[in-house]
Design a protein around this nucleic acid. Structure first.
Length: 446
RNA sequence: GGAGGAAUGGCCGAGUGGUUGAAGGCGGCGGUCUUGAAAACCGCAAGGCUCGCAAGGGUCUCGGGGGUUCGAAUCCCUCUUCCUCCGCCA
């Protein structure tokens, strides 16, 4: 286990999602706030294990205290030239008792941890209550869906017909839910990556980071994918390596275990990475095209901020992601997720959904969330306002959002900018990156 | 892959079984002095868990885990990371 417990939890091993003391003291309130997010039984099992653990911890600490007293008596006796054999004998008995109590505490530690691991984050007060996506709130709609004087096609027809997208050969190479991009298709993907990174680093103040595309269990625990969602990930056989499902994992964990200075914050990072997802449990969903793939490329935005700034920063991060859609002139809507539709670790999430005329639907292209201290507590990312007597360190708040998912941006462009002849016009903002104005029906950049 | 070496508080660095949660230095914070600053001097400064209404107490933490011992930063095992050399490789 990546967060294996010690006898008594220590700074290095006690990883929790919600603060235990907060949970204890606000138990009924927490329960009511999580009613749409989880089976409330996990809260009761936490409460029960936690109470038993505290009794056991108190007991072992008493024993350890007695042992320490005896040990210092031995030390004094030795210095005085005495052998202190009777004290040693008593202490030896204590030793056995402590050892057996250690097992009790260790088991209860793990029990508490297991319960905590299953409790999701508390939704922010501005989050609409709801069991699922039906409780979501559309907060904004931007852009005009393009009008066509022909029936718009889905991207899988357009891409395959132009010869820039190949599913059959991808299936031969790897399997279902993979795609091969060729020629203008591959170059469009690369142009989008550069366009997005350039925009965020030069206009929005993000630092570009190129992280490993593989992460260890500890990192995946830090951001909340583990232990609960292991089935959604690809693991490399007989190693502790996992393919990253999103750059959120390496970027958020970049400062894991550190105490940052106030002047370091906020930290804003942007990274391009491929993302790998097993898509277990999504059989039959989005089976055609490149909407749902085992591997897709994404530019991710991550911020580490002071708690008091985090909701203002969520608005900024979301608008940074929106800026990509606006510059590409892609119509979209902004949706505030309900408490039941949010991810496990999030306190508040906006989804950006791009209009796909070929499919006639809005489809998620970015998800921007404030995790408050949930991830920071697990990854132990702290900050300190200043050093000195009263300078207590606190957890940072973490945020992330796609800026954007490149595969879905690719298909949004193909579908929104499609022409009657089967070609695609390149959005103005992208032309410098492609050196062309359109992709012709034969898949050539012209 | 093979052979060696190393890991101590924000940083550097002492410390090989018994007031060492940890000397000393640097850096930080507060103060004295100063018109102000610097220098000098004085003082304060880790985290987790737990008991307690509180004041305060206890316990654990010297890369991670385990062991020996009445007692471990110090001894043993193991893992991780870093450094040096050899081999291999983009």
């Amino acid at each position: 286990m990546w967060a294996s417990g010690r006898l008594v939890p220590t700074a290095g091993t006690a990883c929790i999602m919600l603060d235990r003391a907060y949970l204890r003291q606000n138990f009924e309130d927490v329960k009511s706030r999580l009613v749409d997010r989880t089976d409330l039984g996990v809260l009761d099992s936490f409460s029960d294990s936690d109470a038993r653990r505290r009794v056991a911890v108190t007991r072992i600490q008493t024993l350890q205290h007695q042992r320490n007293l005896l040990s210092s008596k031995v030390a004094k006796a030795r210095r005085a030239g005495l052998d202190a054999l009777d004290i040693v004998k008593d202490a030896r008995e204590l030793h056995g008792e402590i050892k057996s109590q250690e097992h009790v505490v260790r088991e209860l530690d793990e029990e508490v941890q297991r319960a905590l691991n299953r409790i999701p984050n508390l939704p922010h007060e501005t989050v609409p209550p709801g069991r699922d996506e039906s409780g979501n709130l559309e907060v904004e709609r931007w852009g005009e869906p393009p009008r066509f004087d022909f029936p718009p096609k889905p991207h899988w027809d357009l891409g395959v017909d132009m010869g820039i997208l190949d599913f059959e050969r991808a299936a031969k190479l790897a399997g279902a839910r993979f795609a091969v991009y060729r020629g203008a298709g591959a170059k469009l993907e690369r142009a989008l990556m550069n366009f997005m990174l350039d925009l965020h680093t030069s206009q929005h103040g993000y630092t570009e980071v190129l992280p490993p595309f593989i992460a260890n269990s500890k990192s995946l625990y830090g951001t909340g994918q583990l232990p609960k969602f292991a089935q959604d990930l690809f693991k490399l056989e007989s190693t502790d390596y996992w393919l990253v499902p999103t750059a959120e994992v390496p970027l958020t964990n970049l400062h894991a275990g550190e105490t940052l200075a106030a002047e370091d914050l906020p930290i804003s990072m942007a990274a391009f990475t491929p993302c790998f997802r097993s898509e277990a449990g999504s059989y039959g969903r989005d089976v055609r095209g490149v909407i749902r793939q085992h591997q897709f490329q994404k530019v991710e935005l991550v911020k580490l901020v002071k708690p008091e700034d985090s909701y203002a920063q969520l608005e900024r991060l979301t608008s940074d992601a929106e800026a990509v859609l606006r510059r590409l002139d892609l119509p979209y809507r902004k949706v505030l997720l309900s408490s039941g539709d949010m991810g496990f670790s999030a306190a508040k999430t906006y989804d950006l959904e791009v209009w796909l005329p070929g499919l006639g639907v809005f489809k998620e292209i970015s998800s921007c969330s404030n995790f408050e201290a949930f991830q920071a507590r697990r990854a132990r990312i702290r900050w300190r306002a200043k050093r000195g007597p009263k300078a207590k360190s606190r957890f940072v708040h973490t945020l992330n959002g796609s800026g954007l998912a490149i595969g879905r941006t690719w298909l949004a462009i193909v579908e929104n900018y499609q022409q009657a002849d089967g070609g695609v016009v390149i959005p103005n903002a992208l032309r410098p990156y492609l050196g062309a104005e359109r992709i012709d029906p034969e898949g050539r950049l012209v």
